[in-house]
Every structure is written in structure tokens, then in C-alpha cells.
Write a protein that binds this DNA or RNA. Structure first.
Lengths: 138, 138
DNA sequence: AAATAATACTTTGACAGTCAAACTAAAGGT
DNA sequence: ACCTTTAGTTTGACTGTCAAAGTATTATTT
């Protein structure tokens, strides 16, 4: 098998394992994958307009409106007016939402720790550098 | 930022970019993500029982039955009896299904080629080795 | 050998998530 | 002042999903 084929297969396997790990972790919390993803993005970027958030999530604002309604009902996020643009709504995590974000992020860090158990510091440095280069090529 | 945090963020970014790449590539074909995933798994593993396929896809057999119905209608896969177990159905790609799988796989290989444009052979070797180690830790 | 249990798949009913398109409200351009 | 564009919401239709009930076949127990 060629190097590229080998890398393709290994990355695909890694991707699939990440997917099912995330799914199983999220299932335990009782929130859906879409809800968790919304919380993650808000936790990472802070307050966002509906449109910005929808773009980062890769969904339409119509879909997001419904999702935000649910999360507001769960008291995990809050809607507020945009200070300058009367058309816009700004959305951000509540303290409860922040807490969920921190907990979820912690699980990610623990996973990374576990996964790199047999990866040396030197290797990890190259791994990181490769991934950064690859991210730039998309 | 700690190494682990850095790696976590970079991997998350990579994962997200892979997701949206896959989604956009699949959209162009007119087939859904779930359909394409089913074809990918069948293309990679060859003929499978319904149950085996459902497990590899991470869905229930109930969901898979419906999905297979559609793909059979599209003439991309075929159902057949299991030679030894009368309860089982075996599912495999048709020639048209194989063709789609080969085309999709080719796109993956081209992506990998593009992504590693600035990754040296030595780095790629370490990248591969790291990912293989990490895959074993799940 | 007959009865029971386990397994493989299908069907059905109920929901999330999703989009496109129509709608409302506000801002920007002429 | 009047279009036009933009931001967000609402609505209708569809896909993907599961759980639970149903059917057919195989395996196990008695």
C-alpha cells in the first residue's frame, strides 16, 4: 500500500473513532450532539450573532433559531440584542452553559492525554506541526 | 497554552475541517452523507451481513433496513441470502456502487495528497506512526 | 422431538435536525 | 422617501434515528 493510501486509511480510522467517542460521551450527558456542538462553539468563541454561529456550525439560521430556542429553554444560553445592529441577536452561554462547556472540554483534554500515552514529546511536536500544516491546506 | 491543549485544539480543527470537506464533497454527488458512508463501509469491507454493517456504521438494524431499501432502489447495493444462516441477509455493492466507492476514495486520496503538500516524507512517517498509536488507545 | 430461547431482520411510530422558502423587521443605498 | 439588502424567525417537507413490536430462522434445553 502506498504511503498516501496508508495515511488515508489511518486518518479515516482516527476520524471514525473520534466520532464514536464524541457520540458516546455526549449521549451520557443527555444533550444531543447538535446541542453540544453549539455549546462548544459558543464556549470557544464567546458571544456570537446568530448568523456567525450558524456559519461556524455549518447550518442555516432557520435551523439555528430552533436549536437556540431549546437551549434557551434549558437555560444554557441567552439571547440578547446586538448593541449596534438592531437586526441582529447576540447569543452567549449562561453560567450553566459555561459549566457544561468546561466539563466537556476537560473530557477532550483527558482523551488527548490518553491517546498520546505512547507518543514521545518529540513525536508529539512533529504530529502537531504536521496537523497545523494540514489545517492550512483546507 | 499547554501541549495537550494545543494538540486538542489542532485536532478539533482538523476534525471539523474534515467534516465539512466530506459534507461538501458528498453534497455534490447528490447522495446523502449516510448513504455515502454505507457505500464507503461496504466498499472497504466487501459483502457484510446487515448486523455487521449496522455495527460498523454505528446505527441500529432498523435504521439500516430503511437505508438499504433506498440504496437497493438506486441499484447501488444488492441484498442476498446468507449461505449458512437463513436468518441473515448479506448486502454488497453492485458495479455501480463500486464505481461510486472508487470515485469517492479517489477524492480522499487527492485530499491527502493536497494536505501533505508541505509535509516531508520523514514527518509523514512520524505522523502516520503517531496516529496508529493513537488509534490503538481508543 | 418438542418446546423454549436467542438471533437476524423488518416494520412502525415518534422525534431530532435539517433545508428551502416565505415572512418580518431593521439597515443601507439611491 | 423608496427600493434593496441583511438578520432572524416561522413553516412545511424530508431524512436519519431509535425503541418496540412483529416475523422467520437457528440454537438450546428438556
Amino acid at each position: 500500500m502506498s504511503n498516501i493510501e496508508n495515511l488515508n486509511q489511518t486518518i479515516t480510522e482516527f476520524y471514525d473513532k473520534m466520532s464514536s467517542w464524541e457520540l458516546s460521551v455526549v449521549k451520557e450527558t443527555g444533550y444531543s450532539l447538535a446541542q453540544t456542538h453549539t455549546i462548544e462553539v459558543l464556549g470557544h468563541h464567546g458571544a456570537l450573532r446568530m448568523k456567525e454561529l450558524a456559519q461556524k456550525l455549518g447550518i442555516t439560521t432557520g435551523t439555528l433559531t430552533v436549536q437556540v430556542d431549546k437551549l434557551v429553554n434549558l437555560a444554557l444560553i441567552e439571547r440578547g440584542p446586538h448593541p449596534e445592529d438592531g437586526r441582529s441577536t447576540v447569543v452567549e452561554l449562561t453560567e450553566a452553559g459555561e459549566k457544561i462547556h468546561r466539563q466537556h472540554n476537560q473530557l477532550h483534554l483527558e482523551l488527548m492525554n490518553d491517546l498520546t500515552r505512547h507518543v514521545s514529546a518529540e513525536e508529539a511536536q512533529i504530529l502537531l506541526s504536521c496537523l497545523q500544516k494540514m489545517n492550512q491546506e483546507f
